[in-house]
Each structure stands twice: as C-alpha cells, then as structure tokens.
Amino acid sequence: MPTGSPWAIETRDLTKTFAGHDAVSELSLQVPRGSVFGFLGPNGCGKTTTIRMLLGLAEATAGEITLLGYQIPKEREIALPRVGALVEGPAFYPYLSGRANLLRMDSADRHSDVATRKSRADSALERVGLTNAAEKKAGQYSLGMKQRLGLANALLKPRDLLILDEPTNGLDPQGTREVRNLIRQLASEGITIFLSSHLLVEIEQVCSHAAVMNAGKLLAQGSLPQLRAQGATRVVLQVDDIPRAREVLARAGVVDVVESGATLRAEVPHDFDTPALTAALVGKKVGVTEIRLERPSLEDYFVELTGEGFDVVR
C-alpha cells in the first residue's frame, strides 16, 4: 500500500454535474487514516453521489480522488479489494440464501482467496449476527437483516477502509445500537470508517471527525472538537438592572446583546472570563440571579451551516 498520504480518502475539487446542475461541487475532502469520519448532510445533498464517485461507480465531471493512496478510477481494481462498502442500501439476489449471496459477491473479485471464501463468509455472517439465517433466502430477510447482510458483505475481506452509506437505515433501536458498537469495534482494529448519515446523533456517538455537506458543497470538516469550536459561545445573564448590566458588558467588550425579559444573551470569545464579569457586575451593584456560559454544540453549528430543513434528531 502506498504510504505517502496520511489520508484514507482525499478528493480535490471533486465535481459532478447532472443535466447542467452540480450535484457535487468542488468538494475537497480529507479523511485521516484511522478516523471514524462522519459525512453529514440532509437527504439529497450529494452524499451518495460522492460515495459513488469514490468507489468508481460514477465518473467525476472534474477533480481528483485518492483512495488509500490510489487514484480513482484509474487504480480502482487495486484499491477496492481493501475497501468494504454499503452504498445506498443493501442489494441481493432474493432467490439465493444470505450465505450464497456473500459467496457470489466474493467471487466477483478474481483475486479473492477461494480457499478461505466459505470461512470468511461464515465469520462475516457471525459478526453481524446472521449465522442462524445464513441458509435462508435473502428475499425473506427483513429490512434490518438485509442491512446486516450488507454489512457482512462489506466485511468479507480484511479491509483498510469501510465506506458505509446510512448503515443504520431501517434498523430498530436495538439493531442500531449493535451496528454502532460494531463500527466502534472495527475502528478500534484500526480500520478507517467513512460513515454517511443524516443523523447528527449518530455522528456524535461514533465519529472522531466529520464533514458537513449541503446542496453539493462542503461546508466544514475537521475533528469533532474543532467543529464544535466553530460554533458560538454565549454568555447568559439574568439581572435586576438591565441598563446598568449593558454598560458593564459594553465595558467588557461585549456588544450585540440580545434582551428577552430579564435575560441577556451575547456572543463572546470561547475563553471568556465569566468570574471577572460577575465581579464587575457586583461592583456596579447589579443583582445577578444567574450567569453562565453556553458552550457551542454541534447541533447549533450544523443548523447554522445548513439552515432550515436539516434533519437533526435529538
């Protein structure tokens, strides 16, 4: 494996145009090796189109893709055996058993090892909890079982990178938790995981890094602490003398104060000195009922970035 690049996935100005409009526009992603990278955005924002390009299924209109150090699509046949993927839902031959489906998919790669094929399929099935349904026809699987079989397919071979498009779709809460645990476990084995989702809570629970996309454009990317730091910190005050409190705030360099009832709210630097402000207020004989800093949440930041219609689940 080429080791020059610190990125498991890197794209430069990746663009995909459908019928004159950009589904993906100048996307420059950098997914660090070993990270669990959340790819967040509303449905239809271009996440799946991006994933299709990463895997060489769709051709980019412009830009470059490097996957595990290999150029895509030129070197896809070298890169893809090291990449497991779930793209826009699982898909199978309904008249074959779950196990036969895995054997079929594994046989498509002519470099995959025939001698270990069956044992690899069985251990992948075990890993996703489908051992008991291995001989059942995939057409009779429930949506959640199909999703698990899709994950088993992604785990058929030792992988360096997993690209999982909405992996918990269609799963019940129990299944969702199992899949998230599985992702954490895989990440602890050193596999880079690129996880697309429209669920913020999913990203917050399992990811170390994230990128936010909306309407085909990348809005932000980085580690979760970095992203959180992008949001605004606010000081919140409840006082008995609002005009005088405003004077104190102005002297402390805090402007744009929003007033609602007895509560004042204002954006401040992340390292804002709350005790000093408290002391100043008390010095001016302002009665302080409450004073606190509101730390930025990812949710606030993402809503700020993507605006209305963003599907945030809390």
Binding site: E77, V83, E88, A91, Y93
Partner: peptide, 18 residues
Amino acid sequence: GQGTLRYLLIAPVSRFRL
C-alpha cells in the same frame, strides 16, 4: 434493477469481465 450491479463492480470486477 435489483442493485447488485453496484456491489459486483465494487467487489471489484471489471466491467469487461462481467
């Protein structure tokens, strides 16, 4: 139509061989 084409191609199999 059933979606297995994308999974075969990322297995990967070359389009010619398929």
